[in-house]
Design a protein around this nucleic acid. Structure first.
Length: 718
DNA sequence: CAGGGGGTGT
DNA sequence: ACACCCC
């Protein structure tokens, strides 16, 4: 019943063969190479630690550990140099490194928010992005690569970053697609760095497994491409079976029982015997994994399918304590759920009992439907929801624990699932096409437009972006970013081999610029450059602008044109940095640019009509981006520019940067405030359950962009 | 295994 | 409801 592969009996043979096969350009090889995908895997460096270092740049030079309970879940590279590792106990870590600075990381709010910004940013370039945890993303760029390839000569291509087990490889027909993939990966990493200040690694390969494995080969802040014929080498470099993603603890134990400990062991083990242990599907899957074969598709990230909140502790042994802890958890969970905007229809309570043996095993849960009246209160933010859920919790709790007997819990978890976009009877296609601004009426579907799809997309206005936009206060509260340290110049970056052709950091060489132009698809050759360039508001750094996906660029340009309001904000754009001129590496608005600096940007302004991109989605990403920019404006310039008006932050929507707001003329501020007050109900978008879906993944139909219009609010007084 | 999440498959 | 997977 799985939609997955069938007829993959010979996949095994064929791909093993193709691994071993030399690069003979046989016909079969050609055919398979055409169907080869290009998959990127992105992995942020010590993610939580990076987030904390952004919040407090003083931590950058210190050994930093992120602490959850008594565990260091991750640490920065300064700490690693001193022997601190992930998942080390606090005691051990402090022993190794007495100066270790500890930051509590139990509240994931900030991490989650920034994590989604990364995913969103990636999705804005290419919708096929899959999250893995908070700090990893897969991306299927096969189509993007194909498009670029058509427009560029192979002789103009080169690899960006490392190539697994090679110093340097010439681009030929066989590897051209991976080469393009490597360039795209470099661009994405640069975008993540420029927009969000985060560094990370990337792997480029023909499937998810290999992309992930190869991404870790050069570690912080570098990228690596795997050429197909190095697959076997990569796989046998793995020290144990558990290093194969997809083979976890349990599987490893079973394999060990069969006498299999190495990757080679599993590759060579007779499949029929493996089938006896794991069943046919799983046996093939894991043996394929051992060979570097993985046909699992990249499934689009959507909004999360469940929201949960949990806490662990030494001991809870009374009902009162359970109720109190559960109430705390429910309070924060319902708040998150409310911000999400969807309505949960299932509630689950999970406990972990203390046991001497088997600590890891013992999670028990009970779930139940959430009565509609309660569900509605959750999404509406009605505080009555918590007591109602608490009552449900207690009932569920009693199904697991007999409170007349002694009990000893070490964990409580509350979880909402079966999340559905709120239904809104009045919402219809018609309203979708009429009530939005023209620029937001584009479709979000990556597939061709089907009316019902269109409708569900239109009406399902939940977006991940909403979540973090609403929670954006946390972002706004982030401490000033020291761009000198957070945005290293190209030269100071640790990876000499991955010079990015589109780096906004430094003047780009003529050569790389040309190369890049050639790689880029259908530039807007029919639009006079000056025309486009002149559309950028004076304060917008073209080098940053060009990092945005072209449809967002077009969107912004359109918005700039519509209202000259950009000047409201950027009119004083001459307030350039007094900083070190060498610091042009910094991501900036308001940084004056010479006209020639605009030119490269034009290469990124392709005809959006040719793409049918999902504007709704990407706009919310652009919005995040713009928020960040405004954050940076604040961060970098707050000392020279006094606020003109003081407004209680509570009156400003969370997605509007207070500093940017404060720079607006007083009358404009007043107008905006009025508008926001009127729009309050509108901002909290109702929407309809999203059935039907567009992509490989069905369940969720991530329709995004309820607040797309808000991006314009940064520029228009309206 | 920890910790605080998240996912899919049965 | 759990098993297993991922970070």
């Amino acid at each position: 019943m799985d939609t997955d592969e069938d007829g993959d009996n010979n996949d095994w043979d064929r791909s093993l063969e193709s691994d071993m096969l030399e690069t003979e350009g046989s016909m079969t090889n050609r055919v398979t190479s055409i169907s080869q995908k290009v998959i990127l895997h992105f992995d942020l460096d010590c993610f939580y630690a990076q987030v904390e270092m952004i919040r407090n740049p003083a931590l950058r030079t210190k050994p930093l550990g992120i602490q959850q309970k008594y565990i260091i879940v991750t640490c920065n590279y300064v700490a690693r140099e001193q022997g601190v590792t992930k998942l080390m106990s606090v005691t051990d870590a402090v022993e190794k490194c007495p100066q270790l600075v500890l930051v509590k990381g139990e509240d994931l709010t900030n991490y989650r928010e920034i994590s989604y910004k990364v995913t969103d940013l990636l999705m804005s370039y290419c919708p096929l992005v899959e999250r893995l945890g908070f700090d990893e993303n897969y991306m299927d760029v096969t189509e993007m690569v194909e498009r670029r390839l058509k427009e560029t000569r192979i002789s103009d291509l080169s690899f960006s970053g490392h190539i697994y087990k090679h110093e340097c490889v010439a681009v030929d027909e066989e590897n051209a697609r991976l080469a393009v993939g490597s360039v795209i990966a470099a661009e994405m990493r640069q975008a993540i760095f420029s927009m969000l200040g985060l560094t990370g690694c990337a792997g480029i390969a023909s499937n998810k497994l290999l992309a992930k494995l190869v991404s870790g080969t050069f570690k912080p802040n570098q990228q690596t491409t795997l050429l197909p014929y190095s697959t076997a080498e990569l796989m046998s470099s793995l020290t144990g079976l558990i290093r194969v993603p997809g083979i976890g603890y349990k599987t490893r134990e079973k394999l060990k029982a069969l006498g299999l400990v190495s990757v080679r062991d599993l590759q060579l083990f007779p499949l029929p015997d493996l089938v006896k242990e794991f069943g046919e599907v799983n046996a093939k899957r894991i043996q394929n994994l051992a060979c570097g074969i993985d046909e699992s598709p990249v499934t689009s990230a959507g909004p999360p399918q469940s929201l949960s909140d949990e806490d662990s502790f030494k001991k809870i042994s009374t009902l009162e304590e359970v109720v109190k802890k559960t109430e705390e958890l429910l309070t924060s969970l319902t708040e998150r759920m409310h911000k999400d905007g969807r309505q949960p229809h299932t509630f689950r309570l999970t406990i972990r009992r203390y046991t001497v043996t088997n600590r890891w095993f013992s999670r028990e849960s009970r779930q139940c439907p959430i009565p509609n009246h309660t569900g509605i209160k959750i999404t509406c933010g009605n505080s009555e929801a918590v007591p109602q859920l608490l009552s449900l919790s207690v009932k569920l709790f009693h199904k697991m624990v007999d409170t007349r007997e002694p009990f000893h819990l070490t964990l409580l978890n509350v979880c909402f699932s079966n999340l559905q976009a709120k239904s809104s009877s009045k919402s219809s296609i018609a309203s979708f096409f009429t009530h939005k601004s023209p620029t937001t009426t584009q479709l979000t579907s990556q597939r061709q437009v089907e009316p019902d799809l269109c409708e569900s997309v239109a009406n399902s206005q939940f977006t991940q972006a909403d979540v973090f936009h609403k929670e954006d206060k946390t972002w706004n509260s982030i401490k000033p970013i020291e761009h000198t340290s957070i945005f290293p110049t190209q030269e100071s970056q640790t990876q000499p081999t991955s010079i990015n052709p589109i780096s906004p950091m430094q003047p780009v060489s003529e050569h790389s610029r040309v190369t890049n132009m050639n790689i880029r698809e259908s530039c807007m050759s029919n639009v006079p450059e000056e025309t486009l360039c002149s559309k950028l508001p004076p304060g917008v750094d073209p080098e940053v602008f060009k990092l945005l996906p072209e449809h967002i660029q077009m969107e912004l340009i359109t918005s700039f044109q519509k209202k000259d309001s950009a000047e409201l904000i950027y009119g004083s754009a001459d307030t350039s940095f007094e900083d070190d001129p060498a610091d042009h590496s910094t991501l900036t608005f308001n940084q004056p640019r010479t006209p020639e600096r605009c030119e490269p940007a034009l290469n990124y302004c392709r005809n959006s009509a040719s793409h049918n991109h999902e504007l709704d989605k990407t706009l919310s990403s652009a919005q995040s981006t713009m928020e960040l920019h405004s954050g940076l404006i604040k961060d970098t310039e707050s000392h020279d520019i006094p606020a003109t008006t003081q407004t209680p932050q509570s009156d400003i929507p969370p997605n509007v940067d207070p500093y940017v707001f404060s720079q607006l003329p007083a009358d404009v501020q007043r107008e905006l405030l009025t508008e926001w007050k009127q729009q309050k109900p509108v901002l909290k978008i109702p929407s309809k359950h999203s059935h039907k879906t567009s992509n490989t993944k069905d369940k969720k139909n991530a329709a995004k962009g309820s607040q797309c219009n808000n991006i314009l609010k940064y520029f228009k007084p309206n």
